[in-house]
Design a binder for these strands. Structure first.
Lengths: 341, 341
DNA sequence: GTTAGCACTCAATAGCATCGAGTGCTAATC
DNA sequence: GATTAGCACTCGATGCTATTGAGTGCTAAC
């Protein structure tokens, strides 16, 4: 569809623009090595590329800027996956070597390292607790009225909340309740917990415990933990150094979007496995219409558990980011394999 | 030190400037009701006030702007503590009525409501876990190699981390360890936990458990939870709507500061009880030299537990914010009293 | 097919006059 | 003696115009 020379020129323009953030003209392309043609020739090709929709011109006497279609072509056909450089690789390895045996920690670290290495904003999505099951339940009385209910899942995730103890309940009863619940509910998927509570535990509890009604309410409450994704951001302020965000209003729109977890989730989750690149408007959000989102999934036993992603301006170092995400996601997958084995 | 008329005028200037964010001139002060003098008179007084250091002039032909000293005087002597208006009060009460029986929740909600009602940035500091004591310790094995260690404090705070189980250790032994630890360590202040572990528990454990050495390391690790404050922000992007932050660089400096928890802690903690107002440079941080920080403490049994605060431009609605913080901090204190009683 | 040459476009920049909000000072007024 | 009207003065903000220069498209020569 494009001639070799057109590809060469498009590539040069995108590369240049990514570096400089300024519309690039025929002269500067001609001067840089690798393209052995005069500005005039390049101008002609640029005009063609614009007609084909790969380039745009901010105004008549300015250089060209890649369009979304241009970036798309660049990402799909032209980009050279930059070798992750030595130093970066070293830092990723260091990250993995760190003592880290908890999911939350891994997610946090991944977000930090990604934003540090790229100077963009990172978005890391933890595994859904959806498919987890109950490992252990514990009620710890604090005083006569309140207790802490603790849920531990098979993945080591811990949820807790304070609950009120029904009046007149004894400590010994609480221990009994804890035992019964563990016996009946261990191994049950979190999503089923509450229905199981009523179907299987209710009667049994009634036999041993007074105040059963109230207790059931309390337990119901305690088990209503959030199931779903856990999302962590890194380097949110990195965006502010990008020239496309020199306008405070744009910054605010973006930061507001980043603070809205549900929107963020919709944006990042439910993307197919592997590396995905969403350019500008492809993300379907006004606030990031001049941003690109690159994501990769990490998995366990072939099933994607979560996502790591980088949000940057459309004028983003695709090659570098893609290869970095690739490396890190694979490393995370490997790490998970080691843990859960 | 100041004449009544000077006070009246200073007050008018600060009020006007807070509303408009523009240097205020003699004419606009004369026009607004409440000051029955001509612009010329006011000009004379303004010149005096400037000489005394209460006002500043951006340039010769501009109006006056309050100096830090001016704000200080305004806050100390002039500001009318705005009645918290009906609607706001209703929202605060609603907040307190919400089902909320966990510290973390209360803190989170307080931050949200403060930033919503003021359109500034809120900073809420949770109680130090420093003085808390251990209520309950639990080791939940996940598989042969790892377990989750859970610590519950007397205030209902839960900490957890994943630890590795020494090779060859039996489940029954883990239960034994848990029992011993609870018997020996319940009620011990968190700061003492680790020394007590060695002084009192070590020997005892040795009697019942093989792999004692490794186990001690693991426990040591598990108990090394963070003691200290827990800080939550609300409305970080609110600042971006303030005209003093139309410059992206300033925004970045500010946001970077807000993300740096230790700095933030140094800023907010160790302030005296009651309502505190720190204006501009008084905060001692370049990044917020044009911001004011107003804080109030909430307490239990007369002892301050934590702090709620509002960070806004020096040109901030002091009256409104002070009275809001006052109301909320007292409500939080009351709520805590109810919980812990 | 490629490129040199040239007229043309247009944002950005600089220079300049104008405007007006605000001041300080002095003299008249209450 | 305090207050105020009047007036000259200051200086950022605004708007206009000319200039500059990076970049284009087109045509004709190579």
């Amino acid at each position: 569809m494009l001639t070799d020379r057109q590809r060469l020129i498009l590539n040069a323009i995108v590369d240049d623009y990514i570096r400089s953030a300024e519309p690039v003209g025929s002269r500067s392309i001609a001067k840089r090595g690798g393209v052995g043609f005069s500005p005039a020739t390049i101008r002609n090709e640029m005009a063609d590329l614009e007609e084909l929709g790969f380039l745009e011109q901010p105004h008549t006497s300015a250089g060209r800027v890649p369009s979304t279609k241009g970036y798309r072509y660049y990402v799909d056909h032209l980009v050279k996956l930059g070798e992750v450089n030595e130093e970066e690789l070293a830092r990723v390895r260091l990250f993995l070597a760190e003592k880290m045996n908890q999911m939350e920690q891994m997610i946090q670290h991944a977000a930090t390292i990604l934003s540090n290495l790229t100077n963009y904003t990172s978005i890391v999505l933890g595994p859904e607790t959806f498919s987890n099951s109950l490992k252990h339940f514990q009620l710890v009385p604090l005083n006569d009225e309140t207790a802490v209910a603790i849920i531990v899942t098979n993945t080591g995730h811990v949820e807790n909340r304070t609950v009120s103890i029904p009046k007149g309940m004894e400590i010994s009863e609480i221990e009994k309740v804890t035992r019964i619940l563990n016996a009946k509910l261990a191994g049950v998927p979190l999503v089923r917990l509450r229905s199981r509570l009523y179907s299987e535990v209710g009667q049994e509890l009634g036999r041993y415990v007074t105040h059963c009604e109230q207790l059931m309410d309390v337990l119901d409450d305690a088990l209503a933990g959030e199931q779903g994704h856990h999302v962590v951001l890194g380097g949110t302020t990195n965006m502010l150094t990008q020239p496309e965000f020199k306008d405070v209003d744009k910054v605010k729109t973006l930061l507001d979007l980043l603070e809205e977890t549900p929107t963020l989730l919709r944006l990042v989750s439910s993307l197919p496995d592997g590396i995905q690149v969403k350019i500008g408007a492809e993300n379907g959000h006004q606030a990031i219409s001049n941003c690109s989102l690159i994501t990769a999934t990490y998995s366990f036993e072939g099933q994607a558990l979560g996502t790591i992603g980088i949000l940057g301006p459309t004028r983003m170092e695709y090659g570098k980011v893609i290869s970095l995400l690739d490396v890190l996601s694979k490393d995370m997958t490997r790490l998970l394999g080691k843990w859960y084995k």
